[in-house]
Design a protein around this nucleic acid. Structure first.
Lengths: 207, 207
DNA sequence: ACCTGAACACCGTTCAAGT
DNA sequence: ACCTGAACACCGTTCAAGT
């Protein structure tokens, strides 16, 4: 049932996930779901933990930076597969076992690498803020490649053009670089990630 | 009207903002709102732009790092005042003039500081992912100080205790540091922010 | 130009009743 | 133990009708 809910949200988005639609998907009436789940919030908790379960992170590597890098990439990939989960992963008040597993593994990796208690919290906080924040931005900025999407984008660009005269830097940077072919979210993600990891490496052992 | 909507969302949260409730707040029927707004999405666009309007950023400082730091803090403060906006700021497909103003000012500041086009995008992306991601985490983690909140927290802690034996690092780090008095979100935010800004400074002029 | 009553197509959820 | 029909209290939104 949780699996069906995840599949439905993957296909139709967060607002496409409805108790009624999920029920019909399962060949059942909406009210039957309440025999397996206390509420929709409860359902979402379970779904989020499934996504955490897809982040496989084996922390036994001797190279903490490589391990953290791999885990960050795995997290982002899981969020790309389940865009509806972005913004929900860190905002659930009832974390599940897979969430605990991942967090514990990350903290263990950092402690073993020689980070102090304080620095471990700093490192964890900075990395996760970045990972989830990047996914949040990417969720919107990814271009709709459908026909209507392209038409809509063209329409917006035209509408913007009159206004954009007031924002020269926006024009220069977006028009001159981001809108060009070759701009790559994967590379962008890795830039910021490595910036943080390198910075943390410099502070390892401190405090 | 937008102001009233923001006030209502500040008080009752995102899900407390309803066309019907907003209407009664304004002494009017729900359907009347559609004379001033095309839809609820349109309303949210306007509200988000009000929040962007509260981020005052004068980029004429010669010290780019100080300017970016101040702007990051101003952004976080705006999000603390309007928690419902976290997760919406970067996810609107119809950005308003205040959004353009802030983004243009940031890009201009970076360009003037000597960042290349490519590096400007990197710097902007890394910072904003961090700022909005941090706000997203903080939104949940901030403790409810009401009586029910405290009772709920105590209940959860007890419930968790049995499980936590499997997660030694979680126990060590959360129990030994984060749960202690003195843990401070402001300081945590600044740590990651300065980590990124210092890293960017090292790369300025490159590429 | 602005407001409204009635209505439509949805939500999540409860509860007594069925098997 | 699991399912269901009917119902409740909500949503956003449309539209013809009023001033």
């Amino acid at each position: 049932m949780l699996r069906a809910a995840v599949a439905l949200a993957d296909e139709r988005g967060a607002e496409g996930l409805t108790m009624r639609k999920l029920a019909t998907e399962l060949g059942v009436e909406a009210m039957s779901l309440y025999n397996h789940v206390a509420s929709k919030e409860d359902l979402l908790d379970g779904m989020v933990d499934i996504v955490f379960g897809e982040i496989d992170f084996s922390s036994d590597s001797p190279d903490w930076k490589a391990a953290m890098r791999q885990r960050a990439i795995a997290t982002r990939n899981a969020l790309l597969r389940h865009r509806w989960a972005t913004g929900l992963m860190e905002s659930r008040t009832n974390p599940g076992p897979e969430s605990f597993r991942v967090h514990d593994a990350v903290l263990g990796c950092l402690r073993r690498a020689g980070f102090s208690l304080e620095m471990t919290v700093h490192a964890y906080s900075a990395q996760d803020a970045y990972i989830y924040g990047f996914a949040l931005q990417e969720k919107t900025l990814v271009f709709d490649t459908s026909d209507e999407g392209a038409a809509e984008a063209a329409r917006q660009m035209q509408e913007f053009e009159a206004v954009l005269a007031d924002y020269p830097h926006l024009v220069e940077v977006v028009g001159g670089h981001v809108a060009k072919a070759g701009y790559n979210f994967d590379a962008e993600f890795l830039f910021g990630l490595d910036l943080i990891l390198d910075g943390l490496d410099r502070l390892r052992g401190r405090n």
